[in-house]
């Protein structure tokens, strides 16, 4: 094995498959919330800073961000089998469930009560997502540089609705350059 012991603990692919499945099956609305809960709080495979760094990579690679995160963490903990376990666990169940829901929707259409429950649940799910972001923000270094980059990214995409590629194209190189030069 040329695998470096990035982490002292060795985790089996099956264990990681179960964790990925648990994250997938509880992830209503905000997968990052549940991924953080499982990986950082329950299993303690990562600390908060590592989680944020993997989230950042997962966000910037194409594809679902938490899937990217799980593939990288799975690979680190259990090698190739861990990466495959991440894909199977995190995508397999949702694949079957989403199609089942599509079938139910096709048959029963929109019942008003069901619709109202969904709206209420969505409002809470959005809150979970914001809270996860706030928790991750607590772990940023106490320095104006990273905070400025974070705030500019938020305003650019969230408020001004600028194209993602443009915002990333400007902020990412600058922020990486500043980190490389040891500005924080």
């Amino acid at each position: 094995m040329q695998q470096l012991p990035a982490q002292n603990e060795k985790v089996s692919a099956l264990t990681f498959f179960i964790s990925s499945s648990r994250i997938a099956l509880t992830s209503f609305g905000s997968p990052p919330f549940w991924a953080r809960r499982e990986l950082v709080e329950r299993k303690r495979w990562l600390d908060d800073r590592e989680f944020l760094e993997y989230m950042a990579l997962g966000q910037l690679l194409p594809g679902p961000n938490v899937l990217n995160l799980l593939v990288m963490v799975g690979h680190r903990l259990a090698g190739w089998a861990g990466a495959v376990a991440a894909i199977a666990g995190f995508m397999g169940w949702p694949f079957l469930i989403v199609i089942s829901l599509g079938m139910l929707h096709q048959r029963y259409g929109a019942i008003p009560m069901v619709h109202d429950a969904i709206v209420g649940m969505s409002a809470v799910a959005a809150g979970l997502l914001v809270a996860t972001g706030v928790k991750m923000a607590m772990t940023l270094p106490r320095h104006w540089h990273p905070w400025l980059c974070g705030v500019l990214a938020f305003i650019g995409v969230g408020i001004l609705r600028l194209p993602l590629v443009a915002v990333l194209g400007v902020l990412a190189p600058y922020s990486v350059y500043a980190a490389w030069k040891g500005k924080w």
Binding site: S30, P32, L52, E53, M55, A56, L57, Q59, L60, A126, L129, V130, T132, G133, M136, A137, L140, P146, W147, C149, G150, V151, L152, A153, F154, G156, V157, G158, I159, L164, V167, L168, L171, A172, S175, V176, Y177, A178, A179, W180, W184
Partner: peptide, 19 residues
């Protein structure tokens, strides 16, 4: 540097999505 630099930008984007 890549991870440290990208982390705050990704966090900003994450919160923008939540918003």
């Amino acid at each position: 540097a890549l991870r440290r630099g990208l982390a705050p930008v990704a966090l900003g984007l994450f919160l923008a999505g939540a918003w």
